[in-house]
């Protein structure tokens, strides 16, 4: 069974002549251990898609099914519980809580999720993400890449089945961006999560198992990717335009 299924999901904003069809009728499936990229220009509907998948936004019509549970039929409270337990969000930089140390960012989740991660698991997570040395630091003391690593750690806390990342590399330079993608890829394989990365940055698609293209609210069909990492700008371009 797929971890995530979308059936004929549609989203429009407004009505009449101001009506925007941000997401046209979409079907979508994703499995465990898959790193999926959704690329497309700004305003094409990527964030709309991601927020619907994350249960933050209700579709105008259609069904979103996460691990067999139909999000659209749940109350906001129940959806919030699913976000807490099944979904990890990685957002643009500055999504860390400024007044909490790295250790406390995670401790907060421990408190609201009522501690479903053991100390060994936690230490392992710190090791995996290379943040063990940053625990006492505050977000303002971290570099952009370090911040995103902490953000990914937060997303992974309590082992969600789905990780949703909206432009996770937007505020990073290329090297840091590749690092973060590398990390997301490792994590996806290691923790066997379904990871969806939304971006307008085509350089990142090389890390992903599947790439979808979003154009004016239309999601193109999946393209299997096997290229490890685009080496040159030329290659990247080819990799993107070929499909």
């Amino acid at each position: 069974m797929a971890v995530l299924e979308l059936h004929q999901v549609k989203k429009s904003f407004g009505s009449g002549h101001t009506k925007v069809e941000a997401l046209k009728e979409t079907d979508f499936l994703a499995d465990r251990g898959e790193l999926v990229a959704i690329i497309g220009p700004s305003g094409s509907g990527k964030s709309t898609f991601l927020t619907i998948v994350g249960g933050l936004l209700s579709p105008t019509s259609g069904d979103v099914i996460i691990n067999g549970k139909n999000l659209t039929s749940l109350t906001e409270k129940a959806r919030s519980q699913i976000r807490l337990k099944e979904i990890g969000f990685v957002l643009q930089a500055s999504n860390l809580i400024p007044f909490l140390s790295v250790a406390n960012q995670l401790k907060l989740l421990d408190k609201v999720k009522k501690g479903n991660m053991s100390k060994t698991e936690r230490d392992q997570l710190y090791e995996d993400l290379g943040i063990a040395d940053l625990l006492m630091k505050y977000p303002s003391d971290l570099s952009g890449g370090e911040r995103q690593r902490v953000a990914i750690a937060k997303a992974l806390y309590s082992n969600p089945s789905i990780i949703l990342a909206d432009e996770p590399t937007a505020s990073l330079d290329s090297d840091r961006a590749y690092e973060v993608m590398e990390l997301l890829k490792t994590v996806t394989k290691q923790k066997n999560t379904t990871t969806i990365v939304v971006t307008h940055d085509i350089r990142l698609v090389g890390y992903c198992d599947k790439v979808y293209k979003m154009t004016d609210g239309v999601l193109s069909s999946a393209i299997e990717k096997h290229i490890k990492r685009p080496q040159t700008v030329f290659e990247e371009k080819v990799a993107y335009t070929n499909h």
């Binding site: 994350g54 933050l56 519980q81 807490l84 969000f89 957002l91 809580i97 400024p98 609201v112």
Partner: peptide, 15 residues
Amino acid sequence: SMFGVMKAQGISSTY
């Protein structure tokens, strides 16, 4: 915006 992020992560308004 910070509260928004926490709510997105599933931390409840009540908390």
